[in-house]
Amino acid sequence: MVQQLSLFSSISKSQYELTKTSIETLTGFKSLTYQNINLISSPKIITKYEPNSKNAQYEQYKINLKAPFKPELHRNDYKDWILSIMDIPSAGKRKINTQSILESNIQILDKESNIDKYLDDLGYKVDTEYVIKGERFFYVNNITIEIFQILVKTETTQETEVKEKGDWEPIDPNFYIIKAFINVEKATDIENLQKSSNHLLNLKNELTGLVELDISDRNSMDSRIGLRK
């Protein structure tokens, strides 16, 4: 389980090249492009919340799966996945998102099996599928900066142009999301968490005027099944 400290921002397409070049200059490295397919899955049976019952402490989470994206493949063609379960970011007056993430590698060895079956065995089913396309930068003090867009499958409304797999289109072609984060191994490593927070805040200061990195609403990063909401 890692603690992920993060800050977010968004830029318009017109700022993209400038921002990319600036961050490349800042980090001193060329960016790396990456694209992931992401699946969000929810439990098939949602435990009903009853006050004062046994399951009052019980919390169900959505499961997020990701794999390197290949346009020609269906999600059931991918064999290697990274499974992650994310807690809601810590509450309190904070300047930086702090979120626990549990991650594991999933390898589907059985040729007959696929990710849908795997999730089915866990009692989960895929809700949403999206692709992240972006650039990744590595900066000193273990900071990773990502500039990305989220793509979803277009709904093929036009009957004349039915595409079997559908085209992946950005949900907002004119905007990019920027995420700057540091992963800290242990949630108990207070010293390292404090140090990393300062590193991120320094980066925030450094990029002021170009990109305004900020903490996001912790509720938007909540992947719990919203029974109590």
Partner: peptide, 24 residues
């Protein structure tokens, strides 16, 4: 070279909500 006055379609929080919960 022009000023970009366009507003994002979704706020960062809305995008994150989509990434974590799948709802847009």
């Amino acid at each position: 070279i022009k000023q970009d006055f366009s507003r994002p379609k979704y706020s960062i929080d809305e995008v994150l909500k989509f990434m974590y919960q799948g709802s847009l």
